[in-house]
């Protein structure tokens, strides 16, 4: 059975068919190969590989594994989802791997809006047209924070200071990453400028801010909350205030048209059949509405919600247009 599955997989392209024929020839097992019937059967008939463009342990990885585990536990798909990591190259590695796989729904990607930033910066050789959106399973928004002993208690104080003394404060960002873009959008909206120091991970931002080598940095709400009273949050970039930190104002309510919601985005190759995507979307929607998953999201300051594939693609297209504008101003 396993072998037949393997063979049907090999025969999904001319080159692959050749390889399969060679393999079969060598093994002396050439028999009738039923290629077409494998597809008529209900999807999925083999494990679904979920590629994460990051190292294990981060948010995108964790959420994918939790959801995959839940789907397997409840049997919402006939086959397990298998999470693999392909970090590096601003996602190019993961996209290459997706292209290596099939477009029958057995190779999908779980990503977030770093994908759009890579597209806005024209980093890899991929764009939105390479993907078919399965949907968002929730997401989260970041905060801008300063050290607890900082002289600034509100975002307005910080803005006033920076307007009076341009570039007098250091912001920890990884150039070309989400903190850079979010900070840049906010700085553009409020009309100030900071100096930067390279910090390509949340750990680096924490290290630099807490050690006094940076004055302000962007954190996920859960990273911020885990630090207890060592930091003060000045502004939250969600659309509404977060229940876990009711006193932190959002940028929008302060009159700056800046918000950033980073979704957990499930993507398939562009030519994946719609009915396959529908099966996946149905399972994911059930998973994100499961009480265990919802509880994990709330505990980690993420919002659990479901946004369908086309809606998610529309949202992403809009965001990408915004990001391209920002990329032109901050680069």
């Amino acid at each position: 059975m396993l072998f037949i599955n393997g063979l049907t997989k090999y025969s999904r392209g001319a080159r692959k068919t050749l390889a399969a024929a060679v393999a079969v020839g060598i093994m002396g097992l050439a028999g009738p190969i039923t290629v077409e019937s494998a597809f008529a059967q209900s999807y999925p008939t083999e494990p679904i590989q979920v590629i994460i463009p990051f190292k294990p342990g981060g948010r995108t990885d964790t959420v994918a594994r939790l959801i995959a585990e839940k789907i397997k536990e409840k049997g919402w798909l006939d086959q397990p989802m298998v999470v693999t990591n392909a970090p590096g190259g601003a996602g190019a590695n993961a996209v290459n791997q997706m292209r290596r796989g099939d477009s029958e729904g057995y190779t999908i990607v779980h990503w977030h809006h770093q994908a759009l930033i890579a597209m806005a910066m024209e980093l890899g050789d991929f764009g939105l047209e390479d993907f078919k959106s399965i949907g968002y399973t929730g997401g989260g928004s970041p905060v801008w924070a300063v050290r607890a002993d900082s002289e600034f208690n509100t975002i307005q104080e910080l803005i006033d200071h920076l307007k009076a003394n341009p570039r007098s404060l250091v912001e920890a960002v990884g150039i070309g990453s989400i903190p850079h873009f979010v900070g840049g959008m906010f700085a553009n909206a409020a009309g100030f400028e900071t100096r930067y120091v390279t910090a390509n991970s949340g750990a680096d931002r924490l290290r630099l801010l807490l050690g006094g080598n940076a004055d302000v940095a962007l954190f996920s709400a859960s990273e911020f909350l885990a630090q207890g009273d060592t930091m003060k949050a000045l502004v939250y970039f969600g659309r509404e205030r977060l229940p876990n930190m009711p006193d932190v104002p959002t940028a929008t309510e302060l009159g700056f048209d800046v918000s950033w919601a980073n979704p957990n985005w499930w993507l398939a190759p562009a030519d994946t059949p719609d009915e396959v995507v529908a099966v996946l979307a149905a399972a994911l929607e059930k998973a994100i509405n499961d009480p265990d998953i919802t509880a994990h999201f709330v505990a980690n300051t993420l919002e659990p919600y479901w946004m369908s594939g086309p809606d998610a693609m529309e949202d992403a297209t809009k965001t990408l247009a915004e990001l391209k504008k920002v990329a032109a101003t901050i680069n």
Binding site: P87, G88, G89, A90, A92, N93, V95, N96, G124, D125
Partner: peptide
Amino acid sequence: GNSALLSGFG
């Protein structure tokens, strides 16, 4: 222009 090189040599 090689996307495999984007992640550098591991």
